[in-house]
Write a protein that binds this DNA or RNA. Structure first.
Lengths: 176, 176
DNA sequence: CTCCCATATGCAAACACTTGCATATGGGAG
DNA sequence: CTCCCATATGCAAGTGTTTGCATATGGGAG
């Protein structure tokens, strides 16, 4: 039930269309919340019907109308209520580890190759995060203060990816 | 589509009932794959129909019959095919981080309290993993060799939880 | 001139997962 | 004596997510 709340978070600071949200998910919540455009558009429709959002249609030429959503009072209340009520510890479902568990069934180079592929992705994410971190650390004190909490989520991404890469080293040592 | 494959992994070494699998999930794959009993029973039924598993009914007194499933040749092939084909990088959907991102909307003690609650769970998991690690490290060389790959998945759990707890320290420093 | 990408939205079907309910017994704690 | 836990299985309804399809234009690369 949290895509709804993630959307409320992203619309809380400024209104936006489904497409805008798609970009904001990639840029801001990408590491800890994933959403496809189909999911977002459907959710926006439902949330509009439920009165959490308001929609303003902006006609455009040659393209479908841009539907700009903004959060309503009711939406804001729902967001606060959600933040204040406890969340479950997020569960992990990681197919790669299931494979590794049963890796004895295949040649170990198959597992190693897959680890190396995944490592590339994790290394790329870490690099993105480190760039963002540097940007934050170079901000002036006042601007910095406004991004303190997003920065903490970025730190989660950095520590998580570093742990992943440390683990990959252990795996490589064992499999080569 | 991986619950199916996780079940194949757990049945590959020895047959078992739905209830057995539930326990095996908790003991062995718990950190990286979660499954409820409803999901497992349904999946076993479907996989039996699809010919990946064979079922033998053991009558019992006072309890429902135990249905013991074992992997078929076709199931074994499906498992190998899955292990050999690349898996996507698993996506993270972490509500706690979405909350933290928007934490400025509420009193910071609310966020801090929630972090402390989650920390308990992660600390408990880490302790469980460290106990299992010690058990592994005390095994004799021969037995050790047989558990090398499961041990690597355990290491993933340990490094992951340690990173989580390191992050929690940063959050606490900031929020107090 | 064509192909791909960004912009911009959406439906429908299938698959996956959660939540609530339902049944039935034996054993231990309080 | 009652309540909870472990054993043992399952259906049904709802919620959430993925995958495939559909449309339409402008701009840049080759």
């Amino acid at each position: 039930m949290s895509l709804k709340h993630a959307i409320l978070v992203l619309l809380e600071t400024e209104p936006g269309s489904g497409y805008d949200l798609l970009k904001r998910f990639k840029e801001r919540l990408g590491y800890f919340w994933n959403a496809s455009h189909q999911q977002i558009y459907l959710q926006l429709k439902n949330m509009n019907q439920a009165g959490l959002l308001q929609c303003e249609q902006q006609p455009q030429v040659g393209k479908p109308d841009r539907k700009v959503y903004k959060i309503t009072h009711s939406g804001h209340e729902a967001l606060l209520e959600w933040i204040e009520s406890p969340a479950k510890v997020s569960r992990v479902n990681d197919a790669l580890l299931v494979k590794m568990y049963a890796g004895h069934l295949v040649d170990k180079h198959i597992i190693l190759q897959e680890i190396l592929q995944h490592k590339k992705v994790h290394q790329a994410m870490l690099n993105t995060f480190l760039t963002l971190e540097e940007k934050y650390l170079n901000m002036e004190a006042q601007e910095k203060a406004g991004y303190a909490l997003p920065f903490l989520t970025l730190r989660k991404g950095i520590l998580g990816e570093q742990a992943w890469l440390d683990w990959a080293v252990e795996v490589e040592v064992f499999l080569t």
